[in-house]
Amino acid sequence: MSQSLAVIFNKAPYGTQSGRELLDIALMAAAFDMDISALFIDDGVYQLLENQQPDILNMKNHSPTFKALELYGIETVLISQEDLSQRSLSEAQLLKVAKVSSSNHINQVIRRSDFVFML
C-alpha cells in the first residue's frame, strides 16, 4: 500500500518560491507512486487564479503547471470554499484543476495523510 502525502498551498503565488517548490514536491512524489493530495487554503487559493501576470514582477508564471497534476496521477486537488469566499473569489475565476471543498473535508484529508508538506 502506498503512503499518502498532503501538500498544502497556503501562500500567495508570488513573493516567495513556496508555491513553485510545493508544486515540484508534489510532482516528484507522484513519480514515486505516492497518493498525493494538493490542498489550497488561506492565501494559497490565489495559486489557482486564471490569467496571472507575474511577468510584471519579472517572475515566471508557474500556475499553468498545475494543469499537469492530473497527468501525474494527482487526483485529489481541493480548494477551500471558505477561503475563496473570504477573498471574494469564485470558482469561475480559477484554473479548472481543483474541486471546491469545505475546510472540514480538507482537514480530514490532512489527518488521514502519512506525510504533510507546507512551506
Rank of each mutant, 00 (worst) to 15 (best):
F9W: 09
P13V: 09
Y14H: 12
Q17T: 11
S18Y: 09
S18M: 05
A26R: 01
A29Q: 07
A30K: 05
D33G: 15
M34H: 09
D35K: 07
I36H: 01
S37N: 02
S37G: 05
A38N: 00
D42Y: 08
D42T: 07
D43W: 05
G44N: 04
Q47F: 00
L48Q: 04
L49D: 06
L49W: 07
L49P: 05
E50S: 11
Q53C: 13
Q53F: 08
D55F: 07
I56D: 11
N58G: 10
M59Q: 15
H62C: 04
S63M: 04
P64D: 07
T65V: 15
F66I: 00
F66V: 00
K67P: 01
L69R: 05
L71F: 10
Y72N: 02
T76F: 01
V77Q: 04
V77N: 00
V77C: 14
S80H: 00
S80I: 03
Q81C: 06
Q81H: 15
D83N: 12
D83L: 08
D83F: 13
Q86R: 13
Q86G: 07
L89N: 11
E91Q: 09
L94D: 07
L95I: 09
V97K: 11
A98Q: 09
S102R: 00
N104V: 14
H105D: 14
H105M: 07
H105I: 07
I110M: 12
I110H: 07
R112H: 06
S113M: 07
V116W: 08
M118A: 10
L119T: 13
